[in-house]
Computed example of a mutant assay.
Amino acid sequence: MTHTHEHGHHQHQDSEQAEILDLDAEVLADHVAAITEWLPVKSGPHHIVDLASGTGAGTFALLDRFPEAHVTAVDASPGHLRRLREKASARGVGEQVRTVQADLDHATWPDLGTPDLVWASASMHHMADPDRALRTVRDLLAPHGLFAVVELAGMPRFLPEDAPADRPGLEERLHAATEHFHAEHVPHRGADWGPMLTAAGFAVEGRLTVAVDGSRHASIGRYALTALQRLRAAAAAELAAEDLIALDRLLDTHGPHSILRRDDLAVRTERTVWAARRD
């Protein structure tokens, strides 16, 4: 693969990732708002750092909750950060948002100031060395600053358990088929971050699990389509041939069995947040 092709490939991956991040933010906006409302802040934070911010779901939820704050959004993807800046400008909060492109797996992070709140949503389990990242956050925070770690219990489910009619239970088998992939590539997904936060020098002040069961939204079909396309890439080698055929029928947006044509989709997922204070 030439450098030009690699660049194009990364841009395509970036664009796909951005789409699912935007859809996730749109469909689960109330869910994220409930988490920001719960945060045990003693006063409105002035400076927030959003680690691995993606296209800004957390950034804008936090600005809705703390409209006087300034947010530093950090991400490795220039495409995501460009999209985030465009959204900030469209929302009229461009002057309150600063973006920093950085690979958080590097031992040395760029200067992110001294925030009184650090937010890490669905990002800590991707860190190559999460213990080091936790210690870095602790050193970064202002005294008595708050660190919010938000993690998801796997990818959302969308289909009824008896769907599709010819291969009932397909979605659960699809998730089961990705377990080996995720165990190898993201071993900290689903971890209990409480003990790790304590070991890094934080005092855990609270833990909350927010469940979504049956949430419907105008964009749910596109959200389900994008999520299942990503799962297919991770599960294809493990799935039975009949399941792969049934899945491809769902993913064929022009076919009669397209997931976009279904009226029985609902989001089922949950996220857990740990709120930890720097001693």
Rank of each mutant, 00 (worst) to 15 (best):
A199M: 05
L208C: 11
P156Y: 04
D75N: 08
W38N: 03
E151H: 09
D129W: 01
L51T: 02
R132Q: 14
A200S: 12
A133M: 00
R277F: 00
E238H: 12
D192F: 07
H5R: 15
Q13N: 11
A73K: 06
A128N: 12
P130F: 06
A203S: 14
A133Y: 01
H31E: 14
P78I: 02
P78D: 07
G194T: 14
S53H: 01
A102W: 03
E205A: 09
G113A: 05
T59C: 14
D243Q: 12
S53D: 11
A61N: 10
R138Q: 14
R230I: 06
A76K: 15
I259V: 15
H80T: 01
T272V: 10
G190M: 05
L225F: 08
G56K: 06
D139N: 15
G145P: 11
G145M: 10
M124D: 03
E179H: 11
G201F: 06
E172Q: 14
L117H: 08
S219N: 05
H144Q: 15
M1K: 07
A224R: 01
D279S: 13
T36D: 05
A224V: 08
I48W: 00
A88C: 02
L21P: 11
L21S: 01
E171V: 10
L117C: 06
D75Q: 10
V49H: 00
R132E: 12
L247E: 05
D192V: 11
R65T: 07
T99H: 04
A246E: 07
R216Q: 15
R83Y: 06
A120S: 14
